[in-house]
Every structure is written in C-alpha cells, then in structure tokens.
Amino acid sequence: MFLINCPYCGERDQSEFSAGGEAHIVRPKQPTELSDDQWAEFLFMRKNIKGVQFERWNHIHGCRKWFNMVRDTSNDKIHTVYKMGEKPPIK
C-alpha cells in the first residue's frame, strides 16, 4: 500500500487514489487527419515498463485532482509527483 504525496494535499494512503495509466499521451488535436494506425497508436498502445514509468494518478477520494507520478514498477518506489501540465522531470 503506497503512501502517495498528492501535489495538492500532501501524503495520503493509496486507498484514496486511483491509477490512470501511462502519462504524457496527448490526445491528438486533429484526430480526423490521422490514419487508422496512427489513431490506434494513441488509442491502444501503452508501454508496460519494468523500471521507471510515468503514470497518471487521481486523488479520487480526496481533492479529485489528476497529477503525474514517476514510479519504478520493479520496486514501487515513487520518485516524484508533479501537477498536470508541468514538464516531466528528466530521467
């Protein structure tokens, strides 16, 4: 059970959060101009990294804010959290 440092609320129990998959996948601005393959890339393809991964999380039973997290999936170590729209810290 993680202890997650919500960028808005501070440290809270994992049970207050929900995970939202890979971060920094931008919804295409002109979907109609994409080929099926390009659209499928956005829609379906997600990384499944063993190691450091960028993820979206939502403080769903708290402030309800979405934010990003850098987490090592091999040992669950959370390296950092940062707000939506902020630049990801360089690896």
Binding site: G20, R56, N58, K65, W66, M84, G85
Partner: peptide, 13 residues
C-alpha cells in the same frame, strides 16, 4: 463525472 473531470483537467484545461 470522473471521466468528464479527467478530460477537463488533463486534455482541455
């Protein structure tokens, strides 16, 4: 509600 919040906060801030 969660889905709409997600789009508002992350895709269309």
């Amino acid at each position: 509600l969660s889905k709409l919040e997600d789009y508002l906060q992350t895709e269309w801030p």
